[in-house]
Amino acid sequence: MEDTAIRIIDLHKSFGPQKVLDGINLEVETGKITVIIGKSGGGKSVLLKHIIGLLKPDSGEIWVNGNDITKLPEKELNEVRRSFGMLFQEAALFDSMDVFDNVAFPLREHTKLSDREIESVVEERLRQVGLLTFTEKMPSELSGGMRKRVGLARALVLDPDIILFDEPTSALDPIISLSILDLIRETQQRIQKTYVVISHDILGMFRIADKVAMLYGGKIIEYGTPYEIRRSTKEATKEFLKATKIPGFTGGSYEQQQDFP
């Protein structure tokens, strides 16, 4: 298997006069967790939607499995998409289905599993996100955090090769947040798939990241291990990391970080 799961080359995207992506270059390594950080409204979600072909760029290329998905026709693009899972920022659960059916949906549409097999897979996923007792709730009856966890279960249910997480821990309390991060870390280590995670939650992300990319001004201005990022001398990065208000976080070491509560 190739080392690079996703290669993004000089990606540009504007909405009207607003330049959101202004020459993104990024290589996402296979079997690693890549965390993309950047300020709100900086274009992280837009970048993610390009990776899965929901948005078409103004220019640039995105290579996945040897295909430039920006140029693929819908049919082949769907082939590529089958190897993706995605957790949306607002979870995007189907309103018309209860929790169980939401998680079971990809299985029902894309596999030939029997109802019993589907049930056992879904229950396993829901147990992992701690929602096994909520299978019959409708999305409108869930809190934002619970919805996000269902969305996570749904993204993981097909065991895709590449999973995109748009802010998996926002709107979660610190304890759940931690357990979700652990879940992401733990599943990733077990199945060794490629994870791309977007977050503001710098602390949490440094906990799970293999690689961190810093999105700033429509470009990736930093890319490296968490340790390298914290060592960064770039103003924008330093400013961003300082916002954690943890003394010594910038310029510190990842290992030291473990001692913080």
Binding site: G53, M86, F94, H110
Partner: peptide
């Protein structure tokens, strides 16, 4: 979008 992402 979620449907599209699921290749449906």
């Amino acid at each position: 979008d979620a449907l599209i992402v699921m290749a449906l």
